[in-house]
Design a protein around this nucleic acid. Sequence first.
DNA 1: AGCATCTAATACCTCAGCGGCATCGGCCGG
DNA 2: CCGGCCGATGCCGCTGAGGTATTAGATGCT
Lengths: 300, 300
Amino acid sequence: MLQTRHFRYFLAVAEELNFHRAAERLNLSQPALWRQIRDLEAEMGTPLLEREPRGISLTRAGAAFLEDCRDILERVENARLRARRIAQGELGTLHIGFNEIAGRRPEMPRFLQAFRRAFPEVSLQLHFLMSQLQVDALRGGSLDAGFLLRPRGERTDFQTLRIGEDDYALALPRDHPLTRREGIRLTDLSDQALILPNPRNNAVIYDRLMTRLRDAGVSARIAQVADNENTIMNLVDAGMGLAFLNLSFRPPEPSGVVLRPLADLTMPVDLELVWRGANTNPALAHLVELVRAQAEAPPA
Amino acid sequence: MLQTRHFRYFLAVAEELNFHRAAERLNLSQPALWRQIRDLEAEMGTPLLEREPRGISLTRAGAAFLEDCRDILERVENARLRARRIAQGELGTLHIGFNEIAGRRPEMPRFLQAFRRAFPEVSLQLHFLMSQLQVDALRGGSLDAGFLLRPRGERTDFQTLRIGEDDYALALPRDHPLTRREGIRLTDLSDQALILPNPRNNAVIYDRLMTRLRDAGVSARIAQVADNENTIMNLVDAGMGLAFLNLSFRPPEPSGVVLRPLADLTMPVDLELVWRGANTNPALAHLVELVRAQAEAPPA
DNA sequence: AGCATCTAATACCTCAGCGGCATCGGCCGG
DNA sequence: CCGGCCGATGCCGCTGAGGTATTAGATGCT
């Protein structure tokens, strides 16, 4: 059977065109090398060397095989290196999710840029997904890590790394009467139209908000559920009702929406990097390590 | 050291994802295979298989390596086939020379077409060269075989294969007085202007012609030497003098040149396929064999 | 719970084959 | 004619690839 040994040996012989020198180069004895070449020719089913009275030369088949030898040996070496680099997490692909809020944070581009600089051969595939969908994708394995918001203190079987914090506040049109009130309370929302996040996308937040409203005895009217924060904001802007939005979701400047804290509603959430502990993608460890370092010591 | 054995074994294991089945496929015992894979991972410097409670799966590095394995094993096999086919003369390059006369013979395209059909992967490189230059090229190794004219009976250290025969005749303008004479003799050429082939290109023919003329006591005047048959014919047409041309070099129809045999000059030449006996190009043997078969039994 | 079964992993042994040493035989240059 | 260079061969030792028997862990069936 053809072994890479044969390729290495033939390469040396073909380059030196001399069994003694080739054997020396390979740290081998001349007879051992000679026999391997003989066996190689038998395997190939054709002579590769022309035996001449004074030394040897390549046959046409041998010359062609020499090229193939070089190519194959190079590929073997590259295969080894590639596997190593993948195992080291220096090469590969990382699927990263991020949601509306995380995407607007200044940390995100810092993390990604730092990672790209440190591991330029890891392809970063970014997926814009809401928090709940990210969790599903992480479970399903189509995502390696996600930047998302989780209510502080909520239990989880994922690994998490806290990057920042946020809270919810009341979003209301600039000209709404409540904007002139200090210390808005939940009871002030009675009989107001409310716009809530779609429970299909974000059940946790939806449930918590509803619970708080019920506990406060507020009989609010749900005017609309919306799929994402942008939609919610636009609906508020259009005067469809009031809503709860994250503080870090700053409305774009020419917007008629303002955010006001509620005196008796605090729902702190953490911006976290989340991943499955069982995920074996070696590049993931690098991402976590890098985000941890950056989050602990943000650049001056 | 990585051996192709390792590639073949890993390929089986990675495809079966089961040591027993893979070992069976390889006609190997499970422990032997297991140890080879362990050694392979040590060589690679990274695990390729994920050991799970129930069986094995590929690591990312292993999956990448699997692709490389397939690629490499395929290339190894192709290298073997390529070398074999080159050695068999089914693949390669053949440099073939032909001169003015051979090029005009109907046999040439027959030979070449038959060869191309039989050995489509042998690249035929055709070189238009006069006979003497072909001989030099054959000696120098830049030509594998040549179709050329040689005076019959001339000794040579080349291998030859007779394809056809030819002779020299007098070339003269259509309106020349000698065209009306039956049985032109060399002595009739006294005081005629003659156009001879350049002795640098075709020393043998030049010398023979000169010898015949001298022996016949003809004091011919050499008006010109010319590099090739076309030039000679044009000069004759232009009335610069008479010349000796091969019978099979039929002047193109709208030409004012005619060929007349000489009663006392016969210089038979053979159209031959000529090659060096020491030439090791395996495709050459096929060409010779094919030309021999075609020449002996020309198509009906 | 207990047993059968499937899997990867170990222990121990055998022998093929890879490699080393010594040597031969042919060819060339001095 | 002889010394040196080269490929080719014979013989022997030992490494390592492979076989058999067995263990160990997990799972599923009764």
